[in-house]
Design a protein around this nucleic acid. Sequence first.
DNA 1: GCTTGACCTTCCCGTCACTGGAACCCCCAT
DNA 2: ATGGGGGTTCCAGTGACGGGAAGGTCAAGC
Lengths: 129, 129
Amino acid sequence: MNIAEVAKAAGLPAKTIRYYEEIGLIQPKRSENGYRAFATSDLHKLAFVGRARSLGFSIVECRALLALYEDRARASGDVKALAVTHLAQIRAKIVELRAMEATLADLVQACSGDHRPDCPILRGLAKPD
Amino acid sequence: MNIAEVAKAAGLPAKTIRYYEEIGLIQPKRSENGYRAFATSDLHKLAFVGRARSLGFSIVECRALLALYEDRARASGDVKALAVTHLAQIRAKIVELRAMEATLADLVQACSGDHRPDCPILRGLAKPD
DNA sequence: GCTTGACCTTCCCGTCACTGGAACCCCCAT
DNA sequence: ATGGGGGTTCCAGTGACGGGAAGGTCAAGC
């Protein structure tokens, strides 16, 4: 398979696939003409990484997950530990965003939003309270 | 005021303040010895930007907010429009993260997390379902 | 056989908002 | 004079790509 076909099948841009090769996530063979020649296993890995990325795992985490995926002697506890840590990060981020949302929603709600210059949003940003 | 004092008062690292000067958010004067000499108005702007950043506004948005903050003839509607747009982005991000959280929590919940290799998390990442 | 256009390659720069570090200058106290 | 704690500039790196240039390759149509 050439890169465009794999890109379509894995749902990733070709640029991203080249990048993943560059950082060593996959090692596709090369045809005589220099084109990347992807095996089915490469496609599986790319789809795997794509899904992990869409769940917010970093590239470093994806690399670890991929290693576990490839390791038939893995312990599921190792996978779960990674996932649990990442889940905690997601939840922390949600808490952070919800705090921003609450503050901002209050400010927006207090602002008349007309042509006059008086603005509770700017006042809120200008003063610590 | 020198940079360390302003950094403490504004709650920003000195490095960040230098960066904000570099990109033109502030224009502190210079003392004869070449040190930055911050006015009270510089401190206010930095604190303002710091709070806007902590609400997730990008630097570009902060620049716009700062311009409105400085403009006595502003319309509060312009400020509100910026804030509303940003609020929508925050909410979209929360929705995205909650979807990740739900999927990941399901996978984690299904995984025994022991020494055995069978792992629903890896299976979930490997297959589109 | 030649051209055209779609594909592929590498390489380099830009993104965003900083952060770390090197190398050097300035000021004050001992 | 020396030491330490400021300050300064400049350069490189972060994460995960994306855009675009310059050029090689392939299949189809004329």
